[in-house]
Design a protein around this nucleic acid. Structure first.
Length: 236
DNA sequence: ATCCCGAGGG
DNA sequence: CCCTCTGGAT
């Protein structure tokens, strides 16, 4: 695994590659970012951006959201996926904000993750982008990219968060997450586009010959099990 | 067909 | 640890 100095050098390069890193995350207040982040699970930015204006017009704060009609809320956020539990999360979260925090968003990891629908990743997003508290959100992109380039070595998001935080000053935590996410989305995808990557020189994954494999992708692992229990039409 | 800017529940 | 929930992108 990389030393802190090497890690920071790699981050320097990536930050230059992605100057637009957290453009999508500038909402008017922590409440809006919290709501948008909950909606963003398994959804596209475009999908979230499509519903948030109307959402924030109807429910401008936690008090309004707590009083929302469940079915209207579900209909409004339907296109972002997982709409039933997202609606449930939003209603429960808004109620908890009103009851426990006078309608404000607490700048505290424990208080945030105690809210319904808010996990560590969401909490770190809100802390880092809206509350001025250093936080390093670890999603699947961060997990994958950090492991490939040796910034971390674990499949556990919380461990990866810790390993990254140990190598960087708190002032860089949030931006580290942002650029790793963008790199993971644009270049270092599950099947990576190494030809357009600026840090292959420092990447163990690139040098491991697993890159650029033609991706034969036959059924294996968990997929094999699913395929077995569903013997759908096979072409002879 | 498969994967995902997650979190809760069993 | 495993499953589920949903739409959209690839």
């Amino acid at each position: 695994m990389k030393t802190p100095a090497a890690a920071q050098r790699i981050l320097d390069t990536l930050e230059r590659d992605y100057p637009d890193a957290d453009t999508e995350l500038h909402y008017e207040n922590p409440y809006q970012l919290l709501v948008a982040t909950i909606l963003s699970a398994q959804a596209t930015d475009a999908g979230v951006n499509q519903v948030t204006p109307e959402l924030f017009r109807r429910y401008p704060d936690a008090r309004a959201l707590a009083r929302a009609d469940r079915e209207k809320l579900e209909a409004l956020i339907h296109s972002t996926g997982f709409f039933r539990q997202k609606a449930k999360s939003l209603l429960g979260m808004a109620a908890a904000l009103v009851e426990r925090h006078a309608g404000a968003v607490p700048a505290d990891m424990a208080a945030l993750t105690a809210l319904p629908g808010v996990g560590r990743k969401t909490a770190n997003v809100v802390l880092g982008h809206a509350l001025g508290v250093p936080g390093l959100p670890v999603d699947r992109h961060v997990l994958r990219v950090a492991n490939r380039i040796g910034l971390a070595a674990s499949d556990d998001p919380e461990e990866v968060e810790q390993q990254l935080c140990e190598r960087l000053p708190p002032s860089r935590w949030t931006r580290c997450s942002d650029v790793l996410i963008l790199h993971g989305r644009r270049i270092c995808k599950p099947t990576p586009d190494c030809a357009h990557c600026s840090i292959t020189k420092d990447c163990a994954y690139y040098h491991s010959a697993r890159r650029d494999s033609p991706a034969p992708r036959t059924a294996r692992g968990r997929s094999a099990k699913k395929a077995a229990q569903r013997p759908s039409q096979r072409r002879p």
